[in-house]
Amino acid sequence: CETCDRYISGRVLEAGGKHYHPTCARCVRCHQMFTEGEEMYLTGSEVWHPICKQAAR
Rank of each mutant, 00 (worst) to 15 (best):
E2I: 15
V28F: 14
H21N: 03
T35Y: 14
P50S: 11
C27K: 02
C30D: 02
T35P: 04
M33W: 12
I51K: 08
R11I: 03
T23E: 08
G44L: 05
Q54P: 12
E46D: 07
G17F: 00
Y20R: 04
S9K: 11
G17A: 04
I51E: 12
R11T: 11
E46L: 06
G10H: 02
H31M: 11
K53L: 08
T3S: 09
E2V: 13
Y41F: 05
A25E: 00
G37N: 15
R29N: 07
K53W: 03
H19S: 12
C24F: 00
Q32V: 10
H49V: 00
M33D: 07
V47T: 11
S45N: 14
V12N: 14
H49C: 04
V28M: 10
A55P: 11
P50N: 04
C27V: 02
V28L: 07
P22S: 03
T35K: 10
M40D: 03
R57L: 09
W48I: 13
I8A: 02
L13F: 09
A55W: 04
C24S: 02
S45G: 13
S45D: 12
G16W: 03
I51Y: 08
H21T: 01
P50Y: 07
K53E: 12
E46V: 04
T23S: 09
H21W: 00
E46A: 06
E14G: 07
P22D: 03
E14A: 06
I8G: 02
P50H: 08
C27Y: 01
E38C: 06
E38I: 03
C1K: 13
I51L: 09
L13H: 05
Y7C: 03
T3L: 11
C4L: 00
G37H: 13
Y41K: 14
R57S: 03
V12Q: 09
A15W: 13
A55T: 11
T23W: 09
G37K: 15
K18S: 03
Y7Q: 13
E38W: 01
H19P: 13
R11C: 11
P50Q: 12
S45V: 07
T23K: 08
G10F: 00
R26M: 10
K53Q: 11
Y7T: 12
S9D: 11
T3I: 15
V28Y: 04
C4S: 00
H49M: 00
P22N: 05
E36G: 13
G10R: 03
G10Q: 03
V28H: 13
C30W: 00
D5E: 07
T35G: 11
C30K: 02
R57H: 08
R11Y: 04
E38T: 06
R6L: 05
G37Y: 10
Y7A: 13
H19I: 07
R26E: 09
A55I: 15
L42C: 10
G10V: 02
E14P: 06
H49Y: 01
I51T: 12
G44W: 04
T23P: 05
H31V: 03
L13G: 06
C1D: 14
L13K: 07
M33P: 12
H19L: 07
E46M: 08
C24A: 00
M40L: 10
E46Q: 06
H49T: 01
I51V: 13
Y41W: 07
Y7S: 10
G37P: 09
T23H: 09
V12Y: 09
K18R: 05
D5K: 14
G16H: 07
Y20V: 03
Q32D: 12
S45Y: 08
V28A: 12
R57D: 13
K18Q: 06
T35I: 07
E36K: 05
R26A: 12
Y20Q: 02
R11H: 05
G44R: 10
M33T: 15
E36Q: 05
I8M: 05
T43I: 07
A55L: 09
E39T: 06
V12L: 08
S9M: 04
Y41L: 12
L42W: 12
I8C: 02
G44N: 08
C24R: 02
I51D: 13
Q54K: 13
T23M: 12
S45A: 13
T43C: 06
H31D: 10
Q54C: 04
R11G: 07
P22Y: 12
Q32R: 12
R26P: 13
C30R: 02
K18G: 03
Q54T: 10
C27W: 00
G37L: 08
R29D: 08
L42A: 13
G17W: 01
I8L: 01
A25M: 11
C30Q: 02
Y7D: 13
Y7R: 11
R11K: 15
K18I: 02
K18C: 04
G44M: 13
H19K: 11
Y41T: 15
G16V: 01
S45P: 04
A15S: 14
M40A: 08
M33C: 13
C27I: 07
E2C: 14
V47L: 12
A15V: 15
C27A: 02
R26W: 04
E38N: 11
E39S: 07
R29G: 10
C52K: 07
E38V: 05
T43S: 12
L13E: 03
H19N: 09
K53C: 09
T3E: 09
G17P: 05
C27S: 02
S9Y: 07
T43M: 09
A15M: 15
F34Y: 03
F34T: 05
A15T: 15
G16D: 06
A25Y: 14
A55G: 13
T43N: 09
T3N: 15
W48V: 14
R11D: 13
S9E: 14
Q32G: 10
A25V: 15
R26C: 10
E2M: 15
G37D: 15
C52E: 02
E39L: 02
Q54D: 12
Y41P: 05
M40R: 11
K18M: 06
H49P: 02
T35M: 06
V12C: 08
S9G: 05
F34K: 03
F34C: 06
V47F: 10
P22A: 09
P22T: 08
Y20L: 09
H21L: 01
G16T: 01
G37I: 04
